[in-house]
Simulated assay, not measured.
Amino acid sequence: MTAGTVLVVRPDSAGDVLLAGPAVRAVAEGARQVVLLAGPHGRAAAELLPGVSRVVEWRTPWIDPSPPPMTGPHALRLMRAVQEAAPELALVLTSFHQSPLPMALLLRLAGTPRIAAICADYPGSLLDVRHVVDEDVDVPEAERMLGLARAAGFELPPGDAGALAVRRPLPEVGHLTGPPGYVVVHPGVSAPARAWPAENWTRTVHDLVRAGWRVMVTGGPGERALTARVAGGRPAPEVVDGGHVWESVADLGGRTTFAELAAVLAGASVVVVANTGPAHLAAAVGTPVVSLFAPVVPAARWAPYGVPAVLLGDQDAPCRGSRARVCPVPGHPCLSSVPVARVVEAVNHLASVKEVVH
């Protein structure tokens, strides 16, 4: 398919945007330019996606975790941005529990001539390409979105296997991390139901250092208290490399941009992280992941995609499939039951896998 400007809509979190990467590349292969509509939580990830020509930001009231009021002026801001982009086609990418129809209505009012989406509900005249999938079958989100792109007539370029990816080159971060070969520990999450206890993260860092690893503790600006606690739980020895002295534990909380975080993850042997955006960012830079995965959403859909991974956590716990943001089960057993020793064991296993692959 050959198209002019195509609008791809994915107004969710950074991880959701990264998972849209294969679909975006398929569209870019057959379009003159791709404009990606993202929310504020996903914009930085959108700007890293290969194939994206321009990013438009709009907070989507039925998607954003802290939604703005759905007012006429707010809707007009989106409609004006869409009219300026003048797409001849829009792909509305959603997760299985989201409806594309509110966005399709606004795009239609903005004059978008063709709209494609996965939709179980009757769309009337809101969609031109209604792609129906069996939502009882758990398909990885990246493949689900790529399926919509194919239904709309777009295919990945020859030689593109459909893995997650980011633009290269990434920023230089050696001044933060020292040489490659460390482990990244990312303790923060966007929803409490997905969190592993902070004291477990602290013990993991300590035990990784005892096992001979350098550890980078990463997090966003709002997670500095958590990363300081996790990184500073115990005094650590120093490692000497080439005349430079590198601390065994570095607290990088709030010290990186999203692109710099991608570079930090790319230099790691393994990333230890819950089900949150950096898990997908690690996959996008090809680094193995120890995934502390709460089953509030299906791992078959949202586990790290396309890289070696060890999935930890009771996937049959009572919270399974609840989509809860706060754990509904006292004691948070699905993750609190994961022993620190199992995490360290998984790190050592995946590090050996990465050495074999590279």
Rank of each mutant, 00 (worst) to 15 (best):
Q98I: 15
S99R: 12
S99V: 13
P100H: 03
L101F: 14
P102M: 07
M103D: 12
M103T: 15
A104P: 06
L105E: 10
L105M: 14
L106H: 14
L106V: 13
L107W: 02
L107P: 02
L107C: 07
A110M: 08
P113I: 04
R114M: 15
A116N: 11
A116T: 11
A116S: 13
A117E: 01
C119D: 02
C119A: 06
A120I: 09
A120Q: 15
A120P: 05
D121I: 04
D121E: 13
D121M: 12
P123S: 13
P123A: 09
S125C: 05
S125F: 10
S125R: 10
L126G: 02
D128W: 07
D128N: 15
R130P: 09
H131Q: 01
H131V: 03
H131K: 04
V132H: 09
D134Q: 04
E135H: 09
D136N: 08
V137A: 14
V137T: 14
D138E: 07
E141I: 07
E141Y: 11
E141P: 09
A142P: 04
M145G: 03
L148P: 00
L148E: 02
A149W: 02
A149K: 08
R150L: 09
R150A: 14
R150S: 14
G153I: 03
L156Y: 00
L156M: 01
P157E: 08
P157R: 11
P158K: 10
D160V: 01
D160H: 01
A163H: 10
A163C: 08
L164I: 06
A165I: 07
R167A: 05
R168L: 12
L170G: 05
V173W: 04
G174R: 13
G174E: 13
H175L: 06
G178H: 03
G178Q: 03
P179S: 09
P180S: 03
P180D: 03
G181E: 03
G181I: 00
G181R: 04
Y182R: 07
V184C: 10
V184H: 03
H186Y: 10
H186F: 08
P187V: 12
G188V: 00
G188Y: 03
G188F: 05
V189T: 12
V189M: 03
V189I: 10
A191I: 10
A191H: 12
A193E: 01
A195D: 02
P197K: 14
P197G: 10
E199V: 15
E199S: 15
N200D: 13
N200Q: 15
W201C: 11
W201G: 10
W201R: 06
W201V: 12
T202L: 07
H206E: 15
L208R: 06
